[in-house]
């Protein structure tokens, strides 16, 4: 959580300073607890984690190298996307990290397919696949089709719905008409849970339960966490449309601060240890950015400009 927060704060300041980051910056501030609780309990090499735009924390916890983030944001030729795609659109599909496309909802069926393939090959074992989504993303046809398909096939899929009350500027009441998103689980025939998405311990518990249910063959699990995005949709957005009453409500509390308070209260960490954690995260972020800065940018003259894997199949148009 801390590393993700520090990294994202740094990316935001680079964005504001201008120059080094091309394109937008989309942050997960306020959603780290929900994201990390999932990523932490999946294991790379076995499970699949399809994080979306607010899952920096979950991706780091799952095992995505921090360099993947810095290289993709800064456009290093050595990053997994090699300048071909940017910011949160990154991944290593062969390592259980599908690279999201922008179109919301469309990763759900891809994760389902990854699980289907493993099952067909007889090597699914007790792996699960998780697909993150926002409250707005649940309104897409792709989300519905994907979850329904996974439910029909009884696949070990975890759907993590981060309900941050808004989709860009659109509040929940313009997004869906059901009383609560978790009510939908029943309609899909999947098991559903609600959790306070700011409460790290509660999130850890609910995901632990959901993951174990999925591993045990009980089909897709839908976890809805309620929380608030503590910032704009992206760094270009001041979120002025979110009323102060909500920002200052219980919903608007910072999950990282809450987690730190909880750790102190329970004696799991001291103030000094928390400060040291922040400092070591800062160093890790600085190291990743320094290394990325020294790396080459993509070169249009060396770029293959070929979209097909079959190099012999070239359309001759000049």
């Amino acid at each position: 959580m801390t590393a993700a927060r520090v990294l994202e704060e740094k990316l935001a300041s680079l964005y504001r300073a201008g120059g080094r980051i091309v394109g937008g910056v989309y942050l997960g501030k306020g959603q780290e607890a929900f994201s990390v609780a999932l990523g932490l309990q999946l294991s790379k090499g076995r499970d699949i984690f399809a994080g979306l735009i607010r899952d920096q924390a979950g991706k780091l916890a799952f095992g995505e190298p921090m360099l993947d983030a810095t290289r993709t944001y800064l456009g290093s030729a050595l990053g997994p996307m090699r300048g071909r795609d940017g910011n949160i659109h990154r991944g290593r599909p062969k390592e259980g990290l599908p690279a999201m496309i922008s179109h919301l909802g469309s990763m759900v069926s891809v994760v389902a397919g990854m699980l289907m393939s493993r099952r067909l090959q007889g090597r699914l074992g007790d792996a699960v696949g998780a697909s993150a989504i926002g409250d707005g993303g649940t309104s897409t046809g792709a989300f519905h089709e994907g979850l329904n398909l996974a439910a029909v096939e009884k696949l070990p899929l975890i759907i993590a719905v981060a309900n941050n009350q808004y989709a860009y500027s659109t509040p929940n009441n313009r997004q869906f008409a059901c009383a609560n998103l978790v009510d939908r689980a029943k309609g899909y025939g999947v098991e559903g849970y609600e959790v306070d998405g700011k409460d790290l311990l509660a999130c850890l518990q609910v995901f632990q339960h959901a993951i174990s249910r999925a591993r045990a063959g009980h089909g897709p699990q839908m976890v809805v966490g309620s929380l608030l995005r503590l910032g704009g949709h992206g760094e270009h957005d001041d979120a002025s449309y979110i009323p102060d009453t909500i920002k200052h409500s219980e919903h608007g509390r910072d999950c990282l601060q809450l987690a730190e308070e909880c750790a102190l209260e329970r004696g799991w960490a001291t103030v000094t240890e928390l400060a040291a954690l922040r400092e070591s995260s800062q160093k890790e972020v600085d190291r990743a950015l320094a290394q990325t800065s020294r790396e080459p940018s993509p070169d249009p003259y060396k770029e293959s400009w070929r979209a097909l894997a079959t190099s012999a199949l070239v359309d001759e148009e000049k």
């Binding site: 599908p98 469309s106 069926s109 891809v110 389902a112 397919g113 393939s117 067909l120």
Partner: peptide
Amino acid sequence: GMAIGAAV
């Protein structure tokens, strides 16, 4: 989408 995931 499922076929794409399976191909991966």
